[in-house]
Every structure is written in structure tokens, then in C-alpha cells.
């Protein structure tokens, strides 16, 4: 399959002005500003094929939005190469963005005081969408996202989930082949989340749209796509399927301990490195245990453990196990 996105060694460092305290520092800053370098994206590489759907997951501040901004041409990389849909995004901005759709979940592009339809009409003119295509897309998207009931209400009266659906439609009316969704489910209730996931799946399956989305909800990824890229502190720490990650961690167990004083503790470890015996012995030696259970961790927990450095992804895979 054809490559849609190629990112090689991309870096984005922000310079953040250091702020001292007090008057002297404030005056000093006028002449001699001190900067701190914030490595938002630090040497990331990946490639995505046409028609793929990929979820980026990572904790707050991991560099997800910065990555999306480099891919959509809003920022250029300080080093490395970013290519998408055959373009260098920031260099050939006007040409490139004709064929992409971008949603920033935290920043609406809809007019707050007017019904959704007015913002949609504006998109029709900005993207020069032919009338039939516009009407067909509008009808279809509204049906899929169940929007008829609130199309006529001013955006400020909509719930967050309704507004997000509006933002997604506004970004896709021109039938882009490449779509970036930055936290499209943030702060939404379960029903709205499910609607949006269904819609993303639909766009990918039926229209072969290449979709990149970011989230910190593992469910989004499990329900929508197969490929997952985990980033943390500006680095890519995993790129592969969800199954693979689960497989790699078949040797990881979580022990949940219910203490006599009512407290609860969990410990996650790799059975190839630490024996179950040793862990149990330590627990029994230190605590008064009321109940104990051993379980396979949920994917959410695996991810959290990876972030927090308790598990390492480059751990040797199980004998004859994962790839």
C-alpha cells in the first residue's frame, strides 16, 4: 500500500521564557531573557499507509498535539522530515490542506452564536465544495452522528458532545482523504464517545479515509483501530497492534491485595524477572493481608505502567510468544 505519512527523526523544541520573581528579575528579563528548552517532540519516526487508522496515546504533555500540528502544517519540525500526502505540509500549505481535515477537540472552529448550519455553509465556500457533494455529505454525516435534532440551535446551547460532532462534520464536509483528530472524545459522555468512534470507523471503512487521532482513553483505541502509537515525553515508545502489546504482557501479572485495615494495594510485575514467590513473600512479610488475587492487567493498566516507568516495552518477549 501507498505511504500516506512519513515522519523521520522529527523534533520540535519550544523555547519557554524563564520567569524570575520580583522586580529585578522582571527588569533583567527585558534585556537578558533566559530560555528553557522544552523538548515537546524529540526524534520521532513512523510511517502510515493510505487507508490506515492510527491512534496516538500518551499522557498530558507527551507531545501528541505538537505531532499533529507538524503533520497538519501548523508548525515545522526543527529537525527531521515530515511528509504527508506527497507534500511537505508547512511548505505547500494551501495545496496540502485542501485534502486534509483537522479537528482540535479543545478548540472549536464553530461560530458560538449561530446554528451549526451557518458554520457549515462557510466551509462550503472556503473549501469550494460542489453543491451536490456538500449536500450529500451533510445529509449522511448528520444521519450517522444523529444531529438533526440540534442543527438549528445556536452552538453555545449545545452540549460538549453535540458541539464536538459539529466540529467533526465541519472539518470533513470537503471529503478530505487524510484526517487528524486531536482528542475528539475529550470530556465526552459515553454515548457521545460511542457515536464518534462509530463515525470514525465508518469514515475509514467506507471511504478509505486515512485517520490519525489522539486520545488518552484506551477504549477509543481498542474500539476504533488496531494500530497504536504510544508517545511519552516526546518519544515514541511503542508502535504496533494492541494484540501484540497484550501478548508481550502475558507474563505480566497484577497482584491485588486487600489489607486487614481495609486498604487495597496492587503490584504489577513480570514473572520472568521476579518470581511470584518472592513478591508474595515480601507482601506477607510486610503487611497483614486479608485477601489476595492474581490477575492479568487490563490494557489501561499496562499503558499506565509503561508511562510511569514500572514496565519497559523493550522487555524480552515471552519464549515463543509475541513477535
Amino acid at each position: 500500500m501507498e505511504t500516506m505519512i512519513a515522519v523521520e527523526g522529527a523534533r520540535k523544541y519550544y523555547r519557554v521564557a524563564k520567569r524570575g520573581k520580583g522586580l529585578t528579575a522582571a527588569v533583567g528579563q527585558l534585556f537578558n531573557r533566559k530560555y528553557e528548552i522544552k523538548k515537546a517532540v524529540d526524534d520521532i519516526s513512523f510511517s502510515i499507509k493510505r487507508g490506515e487508522i492510527v491512534g496516538f496515546i500518551g499522557p498530558n504533555g507527551a507531545g501528541k498535539s505538537t505531532t499533529i500540528k507538524m503533520l497538519s502544517g501548523i508548525l515545522y519540525p526543527d529537525a527531521g522530515r515530515v511528509e504527508a500526502d506527497g507534500f511537505i505540509p508547512y511548505k505547500q500549505r494551501k495545496q496540502y490542506v485542501k485534502n486534509i481535515g483537522v479537528v482540535f477537540g479543545q478548540k472549536s472552529q464553530l461560530n458560538w452564536d449561530l446554528p451549526l448550519i451557518e458554520s457549515f455553509e462557510l466551509m462550503k465556500f472556503i473549501y469550494r465544495i460542489p453543491r451536490e457533494q456538500y449536500e450529500k455529505n451533510l445529509r449522511q454525516f448528520c444521519e450517522l452522528l444523529d444531529m438533526e435534532s440540534f442543527l438549528g440551535q445556536p452552538v453555545r446551547q449545545l452540549s460538549l458532545g453535540q458541539r464536538m460532532r459539529g466540529d467533526i462534520v465541519a472539518a470533513l464536509l470537503h471529503s478530505p482523504e487524510l484526517v487528524f483528530l486531536d482528542e475528539p472524545t475529550i470530556g465526552l459522555d459515553v454515548v457521545a464517545k460511542e457515536k464518534i468512534r462509530e463515525f470514525i470507523r465508518y469514515m475509514n471503512k467506507e471511504r478509505n479515509t486515512t485517520i490519525i487521532f489522539t486520545t488518552h482513553d484506551m477504549q477509543d483505541i481498542e474500539k476504533v483501530c488496531n494500530r497504536l502509537i504510544i508517545i511519552d515525553k516526546g518519544k515514541k515508545i511503542y508502535d504496533g497492534s494492541i494484540e501484540e502489546i497484550k501478548d508481550r504482557y502475558t507474563n505480566v501479572k497484577t497482584i491485588e491485595v486487600l489489607l486487614e485495615n481495609g486498604g487495597k494495594e496492587t503490584e504489577t510485575f513480570d514473572v520472568r524477572r521476579t518470581s511470584v514467590n518472592a513478591v508474595l513473600e515480601r507482601i506477607f512479610a510486610e503487611r497483614r493481608v486479608k485477601d489476595i488475587s492474581v490477575c492479568e492487567p487490563e490494557i489501561d493498566e499496562i499503558i499506565r505502567d509503561i508511562y510511569e516507568g514500572r514496565l519497559r516495552l523493550d522487555a524480552p518477549s515471552a519464549e515463543g510468544g509475541a513477535l
Partner: peptide, 9 residues
């Protein structure tokens, strides 16, 4: 940002 992702000046 949103103006930058639209195909207009």
C-alpha cells in the same frame, strides 16, 4: 491555527 489548515490566504 484553524486558519492555517484552510486552503485560503
Amino acid at each position: 491555527d484553524r486558519l492555517l489548515v484552510r486552503p485560503r490566504g
